[in-house]
Structure formats: C-alpha cells, structure tokens
Amino acid sequence: MTFESSKLKNYPSNSLWRNIWRRFCRNRLALLGLSLLVIIMTSVVIGPFFYHVSIDAIDFTQASTPPSWQHPFGTNDLGQDQLARVLFGGRISLTVGLMSMVVAIFLGTIIGAIAGLYGGVIDSVLMRLTDLFLSLPQLPLLLLVVYLFRDTIKVIAGPELGIFILVVIVIGGLNWMSVARLVRADVLKLREMEFMSAASAMGASPLRLISVHILPNVLSVIIVAATLAVGNGIITESTLSFLGLGFPPDTPTWGQMLFQAKDYLTWSPHMAFFPGLAIFVTVLSINYVGDGLRDAFDPKVRH
C-alpha cells in the first residue's frame, strides 16, 4: 500500500458509507432497534413540550392509581403522573449513558492508541493498568466511590449537577478497558503497514500519526464500542439509583423510579413496569443497533 493510497483509506468515500448503510439495512433487528431508539429519543426530548403535566405535582387523592386516560402510565405513591416522570427521567438517563460513553471512549481510545503505537515498556505499563482495572469488582467499586464522594461533590456543584458529574465520571472511568484493548489490537496491525512507515519517514509527529492515520482506521471499532457503552451506562446508572446511591429522590430518572416503586410492587405494579420497560426497550434497541453496526463494518459478514 502506498502513502497516497492510504489517504483514501483514511478518508472513506461516500460509496463506502453507502455500502455500510446497505449492509446495516439488511439486518432487520438493527433497523427495528434504530426505529425504536429514534422513537424513544424523540419522545423524551420533545414529549414534555406536548404533555403538559408537572412531574412534581402531588395529589394524594390520585395516589397509586392504575393507568387511565387522565394518567396513561398511572401515578406513583404521591399521586405524581408517571408518564411525565418517565419522559423527563429519560432525558437524564440517556444523557448519563451518552456522556459516560464519551468518557469511556476517550480514555480507551487514547490509552489503546498510545499503547499500540509506542509498544515496549509503555505498552506493557498501560496494558497492566488495563488488566488491573479489569480485575476490580465494578459494582462494589462504583458503590464505594459514589458513597465516599457524593457529599463532597454535592457541596461543590449542587445535589443534581454534582451527582450527574460524579456518576458520569465513575461509570465512564470504569468502562474504558475493552475499548483500549480493541483499539490497541488494531493499532498494532496498522503500525506495521507501509503507509505508517511512510508517514513516520516524512516526519509526522506521534499526535499526527494518531489523529490522521490511526483514528480514521479504527473508527469502526470505536463506533461499535460507543454504541454498546451507552446501553451499559444506562444500566449502571439505573443500578446505582435503584440501590439508593444515584440521583436525589426528587430527580425522576428511570432507576430512581424503580427504587421508589419497589415497596409498591404488590398493589401498584405499574409504578415499576413502565420505567422498567423504558430501560429494557432502550438498552435492547441500543444492543441491536450495535450488533448491526458491527456486522455492517465487517465486509465479510453476509446477511
């Protein structure tokens, strides 16, 4: 491969992306997941602008009522409308998933690219660090970090923003390892190719090698990992909130709604059903899209 031809690889043509889209469209489950994901994201973003019901309005006369025309998802133990809270909470849960994905992808890509490009002692140290993080029990460590630092971060940034920042950093900071390994494996193959040798011979700096010649060629791995990381972030945030270490009780994330509904499962199962269904459908859709993207970026896959 010549240095000139590598430029074509670094900057994919429109036809390449069209082929990827065609392969993605052949996967019916991926299309279903994408459709459901678009519906969910559209609903949580613009839904509260059309469904004008307060998420905080308390009406004890309507406490724990089942779904009806007035309250399509029923009400909780305080008489608050469940549909309004599911729509509002979806914004927070999806934002946590997206931002924690950004943290995980950033850390994993940088560490994997540096380890694969430099090799030697740097590679060994970074991979041992990756192995160390992989060996840690994630959920207990998440609970410990959030428990130790949540009061401090609340004082610094406020109860809602502080917990949001802490949860995003902790989730993203404990989920970058698989991305780092995938990126490192691809970089180890790329650095042996002729266009990398040509770029180094022409005096390209390590930063340019990573940003111009390496990242475009590992983009498919990063995109697939990013997709799956969003679902993992949503699940982890819901777990923290369900265990009482997430957002404050007056912030209706999907996990927080499940936490509040756990004592009413016998006579008001709808309080847990709808937020649980939102988590299930969202994460399942994201996983379907991730599987579809993985197959679409692999030209050897035939549907």
Rank of each mutant, 00 (worst) to 15 (best):
S6I: 02
K7P: 03
K9W: 11
N14R: 11
I20D: 02
R23L: 02
L31Q: 10
I40N: 04
F50M: 10
V53C: 04
A57P: 00
D59P: 05
W69A: 13
F73S: 13
L78R: 12
Q80H: 05
L87G: 02
F88G: 00
R91H: 01
I92E: 00
S93V: 09
V96N: 03
L98D: 00
L98S: 06
V102D: 06
V103W: 07
L107P: 00
L107C: 06
I110P: 02
A115E: 08
V121N: 09
V125F: 15
M127F: 14
L129H: 08
L134P: 07
Q138L: 10
L139Y: 12
L144M: 14
D151M: 09
G158N: 14
P159G: 08
G162D: 11
F164K: 00
I165L: 12
V167M: 07
I169A: 11
S178K: 05
L182N: 05
L188F: 10
L188M: 13
L190F: 06
E192C: 02
E192G: 10
E194Q: 07
A198L: 06
A199Y: 05
S200P: 06
A204I: 05
A204S: 13
V218I: 09
V218A: 14
V221D: 10
I223Q: 04
I223E: 06
A229F: 01
A229P: 06
G246N: 08
M257G: 03
Q260V: 02
D263T: 03
Y264F: 14
L265M: 11
T266S: 15
T266R: 15
H270M: 06
M271H: 04
F273N: 04
V281N: 13
Y288E: 08
D291C: 02
G292R: 07
P299T: 12
